Simulated assay, not measured.
Amino acid sequence: MKPDVATEKSKAMGRSGLAAYIEDPDSFPSSRVIYSNEKFVVINDAYPKSIIHTLILPRDLKKSVMRPQDAFDDSAFLAECVAEEKKVRKLVATELRRRFGQQSASDRPLIEALESDDPPEQLPPGRDWEKEAVSGIHSNPSMRNLHIHVMSREFCGEKMNKTNHYQSFTTDFLVPLDQFPLTKHDHRRHYSWMPVDMICWRCGKNFGNRMLRLKEHLELEKDEWIKE
């Protein structure tokens, strides 16, 4: 499938590529921009590190060019971003259920009840797919414009190819929004190093820096995770 022109232009902008979405979200197809409003643009990451990998882009031009650690010192702005993150987390959870609910043992009773000819008044709770998402900002973002990651937690996206990709989402390099505002001396304000070893998010096995071995393992863990 040929990439859309708008996305290719944003990629060509390098570290400033997210600005194109903020300035003109309507120029992108729905496969890229999920929705936009006056304060936020929510997109599917062009370089997904998980099966579902979205980005929340604040449109406040002053805040957008700040380091997130500093921007989130503003309690009002932080509150807006937290509220938007909750909305997007629900969208990610809904998409996870759509894709994997039929294969999930804990979700199957709910789906069967919903699909029955005579659904019960009290539905089974089903799987809490919101808990299967991770979100936050990178301590040292690779892109210039502030962005918040909201993604599924299996880390089997097509662009999960490097050790620092994996570590950036499975160590304290990723800072959840509920950790803000950071204290003045919190090391995540000026993150200077990343752990050497890659640890499986699900079973805790240490893969060192062996990315290919980890990727093979993550695919197996993904299948078991879906079945839960």
Score class of each variant (00 low, 15 high):
residue 228 E to A: 03
residue 129 W to N: 12
residue 227 K to A: 13
residue 210 R to M: 13
residue 93 A to Y: 05
residue 65 V to H: 05
residue 45 D to T: 08
residue 195 P to L: 14
residue 30 S to T: 12
residue 8 E to Y: 01
residue 50 S to W: 07
residue 205 K to I: 02
residue 44 N to G: 01
residue 183 T to S: 11
residue 170 T to A: 14
residue 103 Q to D: 09
residue 12 A to R: 06
residue 148 I to Q: 11
residue 41 V to E: 09
residue 220 L to T: 01
residue 190 H to G: 13
residue 143 M to S: 09
residue 133 A to C: 10
residue 31 S to R: 12
residue 171 T to Q: 05
residue 82 V to E: 15
residue 221 E to L: 00
residue 59 R to K: 15
residue 105 A to S: 12
residue 109 P to L: 03
residue 159 K to Y: 02
residue 55 L to D: 04
residue 97 R to S: 11
residue 67 R to L: 09
residue 220 L to M: 03
residue 22 I to K: 12
residue 36 S to G: 01
residue 64 S to Y: 13
residue 53 H to I: 13
residue 5 V to H: 04
residue 185 H to Q: 14
residue 223 D to H: 04
residue 214 L to M: 15
residue 23 E to F: 07
residue 104 S to K: 10
residue 127 R to G: 00
residue 63 K to H: 06
residue 178 D to N: 13
residue 37 N to F: 05
residue 29 P to R: 05
residue 79 A to L: 08
residue 70 D to F: 11
residue 158 E to W: 07
residue 162 K to T: 08
residue 131 K to S: 11
residue 85 E to G: 01
residue 72 F to C: 01
residue 73 D to Y: 12
residue 159 K to S: 09
residue 145 N to M: 01
residue 130 E to S: 05
residue 11 K to I: 07
residue 114 L to D: 03
residue 56 I to W: 07
residue 29 P to E: 12
residue 118 D to E: 14
residue 38 E to F: 03
residue 127 R to E: 02
residue 22 I to Y: 07
residue 72 F to K: 02
residue 112 E to D: 07
residue 26 D to C: 04
residue 30 S to L: 09
residue 123 L to M: 15
residue 76 A to T: 10
residue 183 T to W: 06
residue 102 Q to C: 02
residue 47 Y to T: 05
residue 207 F to Q: 14
residue 162 K to W: 04
residue 14 G to D: 09
residue 5 V to W: 08
residue 95 E to M: 07
residue 66 M to N: 08
residue 179 Q to E: 14
residue 146 L to K: 04
residue 219 E to V: 00
residue 213 R to G: 07
residue 37 N to W: 02
residue 153 R to T: 07
residue 124 P to R: 11
residue 99 R to L: 13
residue 186 D to F: 13
residue 175 V to K: 09
residue 173 F to P: 08
residue 113 A to R: 11
residue 41 V to Y: 05
residue 32 R to L: 01
residue 81 C to E: 04
